[in-house]
Design a protein around this nucleic acid. Structure first.
Length: 594
DNA sequence: GATTTCACGTA
DNA sequence: CGTACGTGAAATCC
């Protein structure tokens, strides 16, 4: 049954006919077509097809949000982007792609992968675009117009043939609802200590957050940015010839320290290595940390390191970067991914996640606005305490500075304790960490056992999930080496690869759980800020920046703190672990003191 | 033209 | 012989 509607009241009325009452907990699938002029909704009892102007359709969805406040189910974040562009920010959602990544790991996702996974189909058999859809799998009408008799999605539907047709959009939404049911079932089967359902919800919310981060952007004062870049890398080049001239001038500052030794391309590491050797400095590579120790050996080293710094700004974060990624409205925008390939951290492009500290003064709140900047303190060891349940480590989290009680327990200085804890989590065995690790083993055996189990799972390429239930993908680097005929497979390289996998798995369990907590926190903050002027404008692994009107600053700061308690309470229910955040209200990112 | 290597910024 | 990511330049592969 498909109800065709042409207004907000009609839409809500149609939903009521399907048993969806005001504020009943219900999932409604949503597909929004071309330009937002077409929307299809699906409930368990019936479908709704809506068509009109973009403003109309957006308004109808917004009305449904107000009236029903459902959990919106969609294939991907696209509807959230469309709605956000029209300033409609929804509350709860279920993103099939995000949940797919939880269940199956990795970051690549599309409708075909999602569908094949829940239907138990082989993706390689799926029809591809351009192929005539007349194969054996296509005999007669199936139960759904988008699904072939062999169970695969029809290529033209995957490509978006439904987008101009409200009725078809409703059918597309119907499939989303079907996938949602299957994902719920699959999550219910997972055997993990955490709460996969809660993870699915917060990972879904992170997708909306990404859509909004892409739209809103990070406030940047272009004038300040321009000044900083100019002081660090020189003025904006007026022409290509001018740019070449500037580069040559920068290079000359280094090369003048090695007169008569030949000419070297500073952008070519092999050339740089040769240059240094001529100057009497022999290094295996020319990395900064290695050259740092050689600063005194020859003046060219210091000049080179300074050159590298300026070159970095000039090439990656120079005027070109500013022009390309910062809009005329003073917003730095890049694509956001809610999940990286390994542990599930958020990633961002356009330099949002690796902006050099020197440029942070340019990240400024608008006049009359402020940044509420918050970061999680010592998140990884606290998360380790929670996921492992090590009572001693849990006890240590009651301190503002977790490393203090750990140091007391290990009977070492605080810096040693810190190194020991980090070494355990990262799988480091060399250096000064080795000795302190012995103490860790005695003091926190449960946490250490947890890490060792992860390490072993990684070495053995066994399936491993984070506390919340995300599958950690295992890349079989040993097998990959087998395919390289040039490389001898000696025992050393095999054991090195195994050790690397162990470290990867060890770290991914901790980093992954931390990423999940962070996203749950960010999602909670986001939900709490809907309806206010404040917006999350940056997520940086353990740090959150909210752009807020000055008058709302204190309230937002309190919200950020409260939301951490809420999120961690849901995440690590009853773990007794204390999570802490340092919240600051600042005008510029550079003013936030770590 | 696409992929790999080196380097370096962030957490 | 601590992990992850994105980016740019040059070398390298095809």
């Amino acid at each position: 049954m498909v109800a065709v509607v042409d207004g907000a009241d009609a839409l809500v009325r149609a939903l009521r006919d399907f048993g969806v009452e005001r504020h009943t907990p219900v999932a409604i699938a949503l597909a929004i077509g071309t330009g937002g002029t077409v929307a299809g909704l699906a409930t368990e009892r019936g479908l709704v097809a809506a068509g009109g102007s973009t403003d109309d359709v957006v308004a109808w969805v917004a009305a449904t949000e107000r009236e029903v406040h459902p959990r919106w189910v969609w294939w991907s974040r696209e509807p959230a982007s469309v709605l956000a562009r029209h300033d409609v920010r929804l509350g709860a959602c279920w993103d099939l792609g995000a949940v797919h990544r939880v269940i199956h790991g990795g970051w690549r996702v599309d409708e075909v992968r999602i569908w094949c996974a829940v239907q138990g189909l082989d993706r390689r058999d799926a029809p591809v675009s351009g192929q005539l859809d007349l194969g054996a799998g296509d005999a007669g009408d199936g139960p759904h117009p988008a699904v072939r008799a062999d169970g695969h999605l029809r290529a033209e539907w995957v490509e978006g043939s439904w987008r101009d047709d409200a009725d078809a959009a409703a059918r597309w939404a119907q499939l989303a609802l079907q996938v949602h049911r299957r994902q719920l079932h699959r999550l219910g089967e997972l055997d993990v200590a955490g709460d996969p359902m809660a993870l699915a919800r917060s990972e879904s919310a992170a997708e909306i957050l990404c859509a909004e981060l892409e739209l809103d952007g990070l406030p940047v004062d272009v004038t300040v940015a321009d000044g900083l870049i100019t002081s660090l890398a020189g003025p904006r080049a007026g022409s290509e010839a001018n740019a070449v001239e500037q580069r040559a001038a920068r290079d000359a500052e280094v090369l003048r320290h090695v007169p008569g030794l030949g000419t070297f391309d500073l952008r070519n590491p092999a050339d740089v290595k040769a240059m240094l050797r001529r100057a009497g400095i022999d290094v295996p590579d020319t990395r900064a940390w290695r050259l740092e120790a050689m600063r005194e050996a020859h003046p060219v080293v210091d000049a080179l390191l300074q050159w590298r710094k300026a070159e970095r700004i000039a090439t990656t974060f120079g005027h070109g970067w500013l022009d390309q990624h910062v809009g005329v409205d003073g917003r730095l925008r890049g694509a956001w991914s809610s999940t990286d390939g390994a542990a599930g951290r958020m990633t961002a492009q356009a330099g949002l996640h690796n902006l050099p500290a020197e440029l942070r003064p340019a990240v400024r709140a608008d006049p009359g606005w402020v940044f509420v900047q918050a970061d999680l303190g010592q998140i990884e060891p606290r998360v380790l305490a929670a996921v492992s349940g090590d009572r001693g480590l849990v006890q240590a989290t009651t301190a503002d500075d977790l490393y203090r009680p750990v140091a007391d327990r290990l009977r070492v200085e605080r810096p040693i304790a810190k190194v020991a804890v980090l070494a355990a989590m990262y799988g480091q065995t060399s250096g000064t960490a080795g000795q302190a690790l012995q103490g860790m083993e005695r003091a926190y055996p449960v946490a250490m056992q947890y890490l060792r189990d992860a390490d072993r799972a990684g070495r053995e390429a066994r399936e491993l999930r984070t506390f919340g239930g995300r599958l950690i993908p295992m890349y079989d680097t040993v097998a990959e080496r087998d395919h390289d005929p040039d490389e001898a497979i000696d025992d050393r390289s095999v054991s090195a690869a195994l050790a690397a996998r162990g470290r990867y798995a060890r770290n991914a369990t901790v980093q992954g759980a931390a990423a999940e907590l962070f996203k749950a926190w960010a999602a909670t903050v986001r939900a709490r800020l809907v309806g206010t002027g404040a917006r999350i404008v940056l997520c940086l692994h353990d740090e959150l920046i909210v752009h807020a009107p000055e008058a709302e600053a204190d309230r937002v700061a309190a919200t950020v703190t409260t939301c951490l308690d809420e999120a961690s309470g849901r995440w690590f229910r009853g773990s007794g672990v204390r999570f802490v955040t340092d919240v600051q209200v600042v005008q510029s990112w550079a003013d936030a003191k770590g």
